[in-house]
Simulated assay, not measured.
Amino acid sequence: MQDIVAVLGQAWITSVMLLAVRIAALLFLTPVLYAVSMPAPVRLAIVLGLACVIALPLAGSGTAAVVDVGALIQAVLVEASIGATLGLGVLAAFAGFGLAGRLIDIQVGFGIAQVFDPLTRSRLPILSAIFGLFAAVFFFTIEGHHALMRGLAYSVELFPIGQGWTPAAAAEPVLKQFGALFALGFALAAPVVLGLLLVEFALGVVSRNLPQMNMLAMGIPVKIAAGLLALSVWATGFGAPASRLYAAIYQSWTGWFAQEGRR
């Protein structure tokens, strides 16, 4: 261990540990790592590996090592806050998919049928869990993990490891993204919700003209069939609003980085 410290330098090892805190706060706050079932030691190894790779250019840079306990705790909290702020953007995008799934679940009637969701580690309605899994698959399909790593690497340049930052610069971009979350999330489910609303109107007309029919027994299977049919048809146009949800992540980060760069 002493030989490793002598070769790499105490300052670089401290930088790796602090950067690992930033990466852990980013990844553990988002469902990215939970998309694939893996043990906790494997997740820790991934975080440390990414920290070593990103911090490799800092080796031998002459960065002073943090030796004071109070300064070290403060640096850990700073790194955790930066990583958590980055993670909020990713979390908002995944929450948009969850919102779309909940809207369809309520309209179809799947709200009471819940399954275990591995992404959120909780029980969710069926379509909400499916939307969450689709969000993770779509994220990796459009190479969102590559853009995530590029944003993380740029954050190291903009916010040097262990140094302070101004949370006020991130407030406006993050709030704008969360404000657009409901519109973008509804855009994912809007055609299906509209189709189910028309089915509700049709069932209401039938119930008005044929009061002897049990609309509760007939309406539920009709809405389920109509909802799944509308969802399968809408799947061909699902990519555009989903891409806008993920584009909002990088727009939020870009706005934050731009405001921080002007300071």
Rank of each mutant, 00 (worst) to 15 (best):
A136Q: 00
N214D: 14
A147H: 13
D68M: 08
G204F: 11
F178Q: 01
V42Y: 02
P39V: 02
S207Q: 15
Y250R: 08
V42D: 00
A59Y: 01
D117T: 00
G151R: 01
R150V: 10
A95W: 14
W234A: 07
A84M: 15
V7N: 02
A169M: 03
T166E: 02
G151C: 05
A136W: 05
F97S: 12
A235S: 00
A129Y: 00
V193L: 06
N209E: 08
V69E: 11
V206K: 07
A129V: 04
T254K: 02
A55N: 01
L50Y: 05
G49Q: 04
L210R: 10
G87S: 02
T236D: 04
P31N: 10
V76R: 09
A45P: 15
A235M: 01
A64V: 10
G185P: 08
P41E: 07
A248K: 02
A45F: 15
G70A: 12
Q2H: 12
H146T: 13
L18C: 12
L86R: 07
F159C: 06
T85G: 05
A230S: 14
G261D: 05
G62F: 08
W12S: 10
G162Q: 05
A217L: 14
M213K: 03
E260C: 04
A75W: 07
L181C: 04
A226H: 10
G204W: 08
S37P: 07
G109K: 06
D117G: 01
F257R: 01
W12K: 13
L124Q: 00
A71R: 09
L181S: 04
A190G: 01
L103C: 01
R121T: 14
A180F: 03
A59K: 15
A24I: 14
F140A: 10
A55V: 07
P125V: 02
F116S: 09
P125Y: 05
F139L: 10
P39Y: 01
G195D: 09
G109F: 13
A11V: 03
G62P: 04
L48D: 08
R43K: 15
P160G: 03
L27K: 04
V5K: 05
A235P: 00
W12N: 11
L158I: 02
R244K: 14
G144R: 07
A217K: 04
L184S: 15
L184I: 11
A183V: 13
R244A: 15
A75D: 07
P241M: 13
F97G: 11
F186Q: 05
F178P: 00
A217P: 08
Q10I: 09
L19W: 12
A11R: 12
A84R: 08
L103Y: 09
R43D: 11
L8T: 13
M218W: 11
F238N: 03
L77C: 11
A242S: 14
P118N: 05
Q177F: 01
V16D: 05
G239Y: 05
P221D: 14
